[in-house]
Design a binder for these strands. Sequence first.
DNA 1: CTTGACTCTACAGCCGCTCGAGGGTGTCGA
DNA 2: TCGACACCCTCGAGCGGCTGTAGAGTCAAG
Lengths: 140, 140
Amino acid sequence: MQIGELARAARCSVATIRYYEQVGLLPAPERTAGNFRRYQATHLARLQAIRGCRALDLSRDEIRTLLAQLDGAARDCSAIDRVIDDHLTHVCEQIQALEHLRAQLEELRARCRGAGSVETCGVMAGLLDLDVEVRARVHT
Amino acid sequence: MQIGELARAARCSVATIRYYEQVGLLPAPERTAGNFRRYQATHLARLQAIRGCRALDLSRDEIRTLLAQLDGAARDCSAIDRVIDDHLTHVCEQIQALEHLRAQLEELRARCRGAGSVETCGVMAGLLDLDVEVRARVHT
DNA sequence: CTTGACTCTACAGCCGCTCGAGGGTGTCGA
DNA sequence: TCGACACCCTCGAGCGGCTGTAGAGTCAAG
């Protein structure tokens, strides 16, 4: 199986696969005589797991932790659970931050409501009053 | 007012201010004889507006659009409203994507529930089944 | 022998900063 | 006059998770 076929099977781009190899998520496969990567079924399974993790928005490091548990034949799954739990907490925090953001945006938009001019609009003025401390850190 | 004082007033870092200047959000101020930046009150107002926008997670380009409206002495505020509306829509989409993510994570975590070993845990197996197509594009 | 689909490496770019190195400036007190 | 110290300067690299480009090589079919 060469890289394009693997990419189609895992529904990701060829560049993404090479990137995963580069950062050590996907093991480097054997090469053909012409230096093409040749993948086995195990690679597809691992790539699908990685894509699943990314679909859950897990970071590179979190994914590495999970994969290491698989590889290490760990006796219990507590480390796996911890990664999932931590990430769940993180996702909930992000949701809360975004809800806060939405409320602020709605409040801001309400300040305009048909005011014609920039001066009377109140949106730009409202920007100055925002509580920058309670910054919604959406991207982490 | 030099850069450190401005940074304290706007509650951001000195490096951030230099970055905003570099990318054209904040106009380059005058310099002292010793090549230090010297800011006026107008710079603080503009910086606070930028920080307000960032607190709402507006992008560089969205902020540029808003600031251009301010600078251009535009007659009506429809462009401003459009930026806010579009961003609000975007934030709502992000929230929905994250809710979907949370549901998936909770479902995944439920698969373990005290299974001791990695093999019987079901979490790793669950990763393979995730609908990668409906990928929650949280970061845009 | 050529065409065309595929592959290779290496590097730059995106965003919104943040940090570090290696220097200069300006105001104190001793 | 010297040194200590806080502040400032520029330049360049780094983060994550890719994406895109350039320029070259591989391989099967016609």
